[in-house]
Amino acid sequence: MAKVVFKIGDDVSTDTIYPGRFMATVLPSETPQYAFADSPEFNRLIREKKIEPGSVIVAGQNFGCGSSREQAASCLKGPDLVVVARGFARIFLQNSINLGLRTVICPEIEASEGDDLEVGLDSVTNRTRGKTFAVSPLPKARQAIVDAGGLIPYTRKLLLENK
């Protein structure tokens, strides 16, 4: 079971997830401190490490639109958050998969902060509301990277196979 720790609407841009003014910070070990920096309460929870691993951000359509900055994915991967959204923007989705941030496409999801979710491969169940919502499978090209544990190990394997 995982708690919804943050709920946010449609078209959340990478400027909201990781504001441009912190872009000089790039290392995945350092980016979480600026995650959602302009949403001070949620940012404080992350900075003070008050978030249980596997906790969920619930979002609307087109989560992660805007810039290609990978910090927007690494800053959520650090605290081991899971993003359940009605839809994702392309580059953000790809970055998340490459870094191993768990992203779940759940077009009908209904949940509020504090709800308990069970996030499965085919469906998400909101235990608090007693409702289950279908999950759209990842584009198949991406699943291979997830299965390899991210793009770095995937690329390393191809490099060693001289492919």
């Binding site: 790039v26 290609s68 990978e70 790809q94 970055n95 690329t155 191809l158």
Partner: peptide, 21 residues
């Protein structure tokens, strides 16, 4: 098209973009 930094690292290594649909 735009890609992320890790994806670019793969391009620098292999010279191709992996898994484009």
């Amino acid at each position: 098209f735009g890609i992320g930094a890790t994806e670019m690292a793969a391009v620098w290594t292999l010279g191709r973009v992996l898994n484009v649909e």
